[in-house]
Design a protein around this nucleic acid. Sequence first.
DNA 1: TGTATTTTGTGAATCACTTCACAAAAGAAT
DNA 2: ATTCTTTTGTGAAGTGATTCACAAAATACA
Lengths: 217, 217
Amino acid sequence: MAKKSMRKISNSTIHRLSIYYRALLGLEREGYETISSKELARREKLTPAQVRKDLSFFGSFGTRGLGYPVKELKARIGEILGLNKLWNVAMVGVGNIGSALVSYKEFAKQGFIVKLLFDNDQRKIGSNHKGIIINDIASIKQMLQEQEIQIVIVTVPAAAAQKVCDEVVEAGVKAIMNFAPVSLKVPDDVVLLNENMSIELEHLSFSLTNRNMVLSD
Amino acid sequence: MAKKSMRKISNSTIHRLSIYYRALLGLEREGYETISSKELARREKLTPAQVRKDLSFFGSFGTRGLGYPVKELKARIGEILGLNKLWNVAMVGVGNIGSALVSYKEFAKQGFIVKLLFDNDQRKIGSNHKGIIINDIASIKQMLQEQEIQIVIVTVPAAAAQKVCDEVVEAGVKAIMNFAPVSLKVPDDVVLLNENMSIELEHLSFSLTNRNMVLSD
DNA sequence: TGTATTTTGTGAATCACTTCACAAAAGAAT
DNA sequence: ATTCTTTTGTGAAGTGATTCACAAAATACA
């Protein structure tokens, strides 16, 4: 799978690949056969050079004078992002957010299949939530392994998050998405992604509070 | 409010301010009076130099040889982030995610008050959702203005998002948090924050798919 | 009081990311 | 066929963010 000389790919580039992927889905629907870096950049408010640099990391699929073939490019980016695979996902904590994510249609569309739910609330355990039984968190390690879960989404309260995280890591899971507002410690070989909505809102709050400053020197 | 020579503050710095703020809340609870950049960095997996650089943008509140006073620093960062104010928030789209966010306790704690809900589903309009009446999206412009809403959270389907966004902008709102998986166009003076969970999950998917490559040259 | 230790605050150096700019390749037009 | 136009792919330049490294300031302790 390795490509050419292989420099480090930045997180921003990976993030933009997802953006390109979505744009290409739209372009395909609109009937485009090819798309230039210029037009793709315009639509996503980026620069053409950046689009080309990003794509060039993974080889050269463009045609000079014409642009990129929409279908092929979409397929290739999907492959790079691992969207051609199915991923087994478990969710720990079936509260407001966890519950909402279970029914989030976009996830299933991209190949993220929620296979297991866990909670520690005796009233929830055993009950059926949108077709999935809620399991006792006590059995998490065994079940994650049995069902070959690759990604775990943590939506438990902050105080419980590190303990859950440790158990998940112990079960051998290598990718965790954390919604708890606390910074978790994981070994180097585990990918941890923090999704903290308060932090994002605080960014808005900062921007509104400091609309004047922000620049100059 | 302007501070000293005032260089540009990067988004990463603002993001880390939120992280420091949370860490300081914890430190205060644990009874710390002061904290060094070294220890703060260790806890949040950053470097001491970065902590000091970030904080130095806003003045110097540390004491050499001792560190930063926890209480004061927390208060100061809160002020910088605008957390001492209350923000009026409206939410458009009361589906799975919108509904979950309404009851997300963290928001209220940080001073984000959900004042209005909107939807276009006749079955939902007029009903009471967790103590808040759901309004017809048709009346959005007027109501946003009447209630002096400063922040709008958009959780409608992708296809409807740009239209909603335009109306919100027209109502004079300057901060939008978008959960729809589509890139919205807003004027320069409006802060737009995209919170796209599929993109985040795709990042995990990428990492799992490409654990080997990632570096060297 | 003096010396050793800690830790800040910050220019300078380094590293990372983005944009520029242009040769090369392909298509379109005449 | 030849010329003109478009657009890629990519080194080089430029910009921005992080880390280094050290003087200065404060404490701790003898």
